[in-house]
Design a protein around this nucleic acid. Sequence first.
DNA 1: TTGAAAGCGCTAACAC
DNA 2: GTGTTAGCGCTTTCAA
Lengths: 352, 352
Amino acid sequence: MKRVGIKDVAREAGVSPTTVSLVLNGQSARIPDTTRDRVRRVATEIGYAPNSVARSLRTQRTHTIALISDRIATTPFAVEMVQAAQDVAREHGYLLLLVNTDGDHDVEREAVDALLSRQVDGMVYACMWSQVVDVPAGLPAGTVFLDGRPAGGGFPAVMPDDRAGAMAAVQELVDQGHTRIAYIDAGEEPVPIASRLRHEGYLEVLRRAGIEPDPSLRVEASITTAAGGVAAAGELLDRPPAQRPTAIFCFNDRVAMGAYRAARHRGLEIPTDLSVVGYDDQQFIAAELDPPLTTVALPHYEMGRWAMQVRLGVLAAPTENDGVHLMPCPLIRRESVAPPPAQHPAPAGDGE
Amino acid sequence: MKRVGIKDVAREAGVSPTTVSLVLNGQSARIPDTTRDRVRRVATEIGYAPNSVARSLRTQRTHTIALISDRIATTPFAVEMVQAAQDVAREHGYLLLLVNTDGDHDVEREAVDALLSRQVDGMVYACMWSQVVDVPAGLPAGTVFLDGRPAGGGFPAVMPDDRAGAMAAVQELVDQGHTRIAYIDAGEEPVPIASRLRHEGYLEVLRRAGIEPDPSLRVEASITTAAGGVAAAGELLDRPPAQRPTAIFCFNDRVAMGAYRAARHRGLEIPTDLSVVGYDDQQFIAAELDPPLTTVALPHYEMGRWAMQVRLGVLAAPTENDGVHLMPCPLIRRESVAPPPAQHPAPAGDGE
DNA sequence: TTGAAAGCGCTAACAC
DNA sequence: GTGTTAGCGCTTTCAA
């Protein structure tokens, strides 16, 4: 049983392959309805399905976009970027070729070559941690960077607006009356771009609020497990009252989870005794903590959409800011923030 | 600047395209070394890269496998299956086409057609929750089911061995001396296959241990959030001492997280006052709980590998058990299990 | 040992 | 309006 081809349809319908092609590709403006309908009917009757490979060879378009990512499994929210990219691709009749390189440059190179050889119509290069990344050799022009920026620029890129996100988080704390706000920063190599950006946002809000930043309030922690947060927050909470923070802004939700634990071990209630804000809005964590964690969401889905839309030409690539689009990170208010406890007065001279 | 093709290489090397093809495809057994080397040198010099589309049209093989999944973003461990499938594909020179259908049958149908039209060499159909699934129309023979089984059979499939996994979990509890072991089951529609299987495993272990199962010890909970676990475990823990369990086997880690919370609110220590075992070994949750949760791991990576290996013919499809392969779920021992507290004696007549 | 020629299934000039 | 023809870039008989 042979596959049915365009010739079979043509023969059955008593027309030429050209006519079939014209009809089936919507170019049937100049073809009478009777012919058109007959061709269509025959096509479905005999179960004709065009061979995309042949079409691609002829048209030089594969309707396929490749998504190259350095890692996909290590971070659970990464899937949202893939999901978004896939959704947009599908909306526009494209298919997604997924390649995972584990950050290995050789694999990356090979992947790019293989993809090029397959004539993909475009690529999106996704980094699962916001970073400046080396551009793989041979990466075609127009490739969109997702959650990372290419060293040297030259490609459109989308990243979370970590600075603004951090500002929203810290502002929330300031608005509640906190003045001693600690920042548990990422203490691991390589330091994520986000680390610097969020710290900047943190300082900026303090500055605007007229709060003198206390450098001792910025501590570093391992950000991969809650244990890092336990240690860092513990150190902060064990300080004498005057030097102790009343609120902690954490680099991510896992660190915040550790901060919760450190607080609990010391008999401190959240948010009455200590306010905590996280970052990431990590699925199954932020909302599930007790109390639910106020945090800043990373717009992975939106970034994924943006990247694919730009790659597909649906959205224009940004011309300003070196081609980098900053996606807003919304503050998610839950129940881990409250005004500071009364027994922690504002620094000397500022009391009522 | 035109793409360089096989003809260009042939011309530069002073041979025919046939020879180039032969050399570059390793069929060069009968071609003298000098010719071979020259062809290779010229090819790299002028940067020749074969056009896979043309090759596919000719050979009728695309070296592409499609992974269709009903949903990818909703469950964070799903990525491991995708990752595994991609890894295996790459190991064998294949690329992965990823399609997400959100469980929509129309989308599924369309996707299968599009994939067939693209001449993919095979498909893997992944379900993100172990279930019996309707086979999409037109799904080609040989498609492998991943984490789900096709209604009606007829396709190779791999699923977690939930029954054995549950047995390992409950056995762990029995070994520690527990006799009043509760099971917080999934209380949502549609009831996952895993629910029945794990309950069976639970009952089987009790039976073998000579423990009369107490039906009141099986309660249902919403399994999507920790809140469901809080309520179910709370109800269990508020019972009078004689009817209260000393250990809880939870349908998943999120429920276990809720059980932790319910216990803590009642001043109960884990594992001294209450032992808890989860299921899933969910990333960033199980290991991060305080104390770290003993649980059963879902072998997503292994299942993903298996599926792709079978699809690629590297592994033979199972002939027994209706083509379904059961992947072992290892017990991950952490710190949430201990012997029951002394004040809960074994049922009357069984004391020392 | 190498080359000529056919053709994978389709689309698009161009002719009629 | 519709058909003829010529490829897209490669592999693979078959012949030399």
